[in-house]
Nucleic acid binder design. Structure first.
Lengths: 219, 219
DNA sequence: TACTTCTTGTGAACCATTTCACATGACTCC
DNA sequence: GGAGTCATGTGAAATGGTTCACAAGAAGTA
């Protein structure tokens, strides 16, 4: 009935792959597939069928032997595992280049991440309206985060100030932070911090080109 | 003299960590550090010193026993390993939300990735100017990519059209693509394709919150 | 030069993740 | 309902990545 609680520690890669499965299941659903096999799912993600089955097996057994997985059912299961079967109330801090792009990024909302508050420290931005949300003064962070019942923060502020801001965010009681600045932030052990480093993948590409790394591991 | 060619296959995680080391070394350089030990570097990245040394050891021995690594020297070495010791000519396709944010994203240029061409298929955008670059018609992709000697493409187009566009990009002879659309793209085996999935980390956060996953592996 | 301290570079040991391989169950068709 | 096919779920094996532990080199001190 409720989500299976994973006891064994689940690897980061497994979780990332669940995200991929979820996306593909949504697509399959739109394409009116009733069921899907680990083989088909694997093919779409360029993985092995065993990998797919093992990933899912950490959380239960959702398939039918001989048939595969019911697309809609599995999608719902993964939604519940990932915790995206609910509405997350998210604040975005830093309405610059990246920040404003993220406000309009529909993919977030589609997965249940709703940006409902914007903050900045720039007087010219405070009070302005982005996609129906008025930018608040970062000084009111703690108060407004609490009032709006925010549980996640996306940080899109310049690297130079991000440690100060993250300290404030933590003070405001937020325990999940997605950071876009290219810096290593310090947070207390009970706070979940993830970094989105957009240069990293470009650097990987450049490494691969220069070193003639095989683009994909051979099937 | 020239870059050490890695013979053993290097893991993706090692390369990603090199990116991190690079960033931290740049910082250390600014802070006027002469040398740095694997211990200090590890501390800053929340890794073990052995991990740092092992990563570097795949490419040579850059340190001095008893002393550590020369900050500037190691930085240059990593630049050369990652292939960011040169200017990469990059085209960005799709001047929407994300696309326009990326044009102004200074971090790319700082690492040698220069966006010098913009493309879109929207007549209202074609001809407009973003940060000094005039948006070209996607129809002229092949011609302009060749003329401008582009070797990498950043794809920031809607998921629905991205496969068509990536086909054109491949036809134009580009072999390194960074895709921001949440789809699995098909490319020939000789093309390097990386995906930047911005929802993935939010989903990881949500998973972690819901499942009380320890935010960080204990030291 | 002998002694101490520091820190690298690296095989070997350890641990985690992926893949294999197969028993098991579901469905279909004669 | 027996035979054939398909595809899951999962221990066990294989592979890959991380950490350990230590020999060896560099610098400083006396």
């Amino acid at each position: 009935m409720s989500a299976t609680i994973a006891r064994k520690r689940i690897s980061e890669s497994t979780i990332h792959r669940l995200s991929l499965y979820y996306r593909t299941l949504s697509l399959l659903e739109k394409e009116n597939y009733e069921t899907v096999s680990s083989k088909e799912l694997a093919k779409r993600e360029k993985l092995t069928p065993a990998q797919v089955r093992k990933d899912l097996s950490f959380f239960g057994s959702f398939g039918t032997r001989g048939l595969g997985y019911n697309v809609n059912e599995l999608k719902l299961k993964i939604e519940s595992i990932l915790g995206i079967d609910r509405e997350w109330r998210v604040a975005l801090i830093g309405v610059g280049n990246i920040g404003s792009a993220l406000v309009s990024y529909k993919e977030f909302a589609r997965q249940g991440f709703h940006i409902i508050k914007l903050f900045d420290n720039d007087q010219r931005k405070i009070g302005s309206n982005h996609k129906g949300i008025v930018v608040s003064d970062i000084k009111d962070l703690e108060k407004e985060v609490k009032e709006a019942n925010i549980s996640m923060v996306i940080l899109a502020v310049p690297a130079t100030v991000s440690q100060y801001i993250v300290d404030d965010v933590v003070k405001a009681g937020v325990t999940a932070i997605l950071n876009f600045a290219p810096v290593n932030l310090r947070v207390p052990p009970f706070v979940h911090l993830r970094n989105e480093n957009m240069s990293m993948e470009l650097e990987y590409l450049s490494f691969a080109m220069v070193n003639n790394h095989a683009p994909k591991k051979p099937k």
